[in-house]
Amino acid sequence: MPEATPSPRTVSVRLSTVLGAVALAALTIATVTFALLYSTAAGSLAERDARAADDRHVTQLATDYAVGASTIDYREVPAWLGRLKTGTTGQLAAKFDATAPQLEQILLPLQWTSTATPLSAAVVSESGGVYRVNAYLDVVSTSAQTPEGTRATVAYALTIDRAAGWQITEVGGLQNTLPAK
């Protein structure tokens, strides 16, 4: 008996099935792509929001510190010195302790008083969690020499370290303080 040659096999697939598979593949690729884009965008937004929250935090710390440091009453020097050390590192607080007697010798005879109102504060720079912040205040001061009082805009330049528990590591003034009109 002669051997029968196998007949070629054919597979038939409906066009609608092929189109459905292509549509499903396209939908899957689009979904994965949008999921990756969303994840990246969400991460960027979260990072931006965290950075903005940190900036608000350090500007508030700088403002609070500057107001406390600029609010002086010669009759309450220990309270003022306490405000100078609030939120600072031990090393900076020790510097204030070392200069306290000289500061008191200036404030008492002058009968110095001052009140401060915050104007603004801004982050100047940030590197590795160390923030440089400038805080600006309107300060009204009276003394034995100027009992009618004087008004000035005072600027503080502060360094605040996130890794040190958001403590102030440096305090200074800006060279360009503005006299009030």
Rank of each mutant, 00 (worst) to 15 (best):
Met1Gly: 14
Gln111Phe: 11
Arg132Ile: 09
Ala152Thr: 11
Gly43Asp: 09
Leu103Asp: 00
Ala155Met: 05
Ala42Glu: 06
Asp138Gln: 11
Pro147His: 04
Leu15Gly: 08
Ala79Val: 10
Leu37Gln: 10
Glu148Tyr: 09
Glu104Asn: 05
Tyr136Trp: 09
Ala94Lys: 09
Phe96Met: 00
Val13Asn: 07
Arg48Cys: 07
Ala79Trp: 00
Leu110Glu: 11
Val13Cys: 09
Thr150Leu: 06
Thr86Ile: 00
Ser70His: 04
Arg162Tyr: 02
Val77Ile: 07
Leu108Ser: 14
Phe96Ser: 06
Thr99Phe: 04
Ala4Cys: 07
Ala50Pro: 08
Gly128Tyr: 03
Tyr38Arg: 12
Glu126Asn: 15
Ala42Met: 05
Gln105Leu: 03
Ile72Ser: 02
Tyr38Glu: 07
Ser120Ala: 14
Asp64Pro: 06
Arg75Asp: 07
Thr99Asp: 05
Pro109Cys: 03
Glu76Ile: 08
Ile168Trp: 01
Gln60Gly: 10
Ser39Phe: 13
Pro179Ala: 06
Leu24Asn: 02
Gly173Gln: 12
Ser120Trp: 02
Pro6Glu: 06
Leu108Ile: 15
Val133Gln: 00
Val124Phe: 02
Ala180Tyr: 13
Ala144Lys: 12
Val18Phe: 03
Leu108Val: 14
Asp97Lys: 03
Pro8Lys: 06
Asp64Glu: 13
Leu174Tyr: 04
Gly43Thr: 09
Val13Ile: 15
Thr5Gln: 11
Val124Thr: 08
Met1Phe: 08
Asp54Gln: 11
Asp97Ser: 08
Pro101Leu: 00
Ala21Tyr: 07
Gln102Asp: 10
Ser44Ile: 11
Arg48Tyr: 12
Thr113Arg: 11
Ala46Arg: 13
Thr142Arg: 07
Thr177Ser: 15
Thr146Ala: 15
Ala50Lys: 13
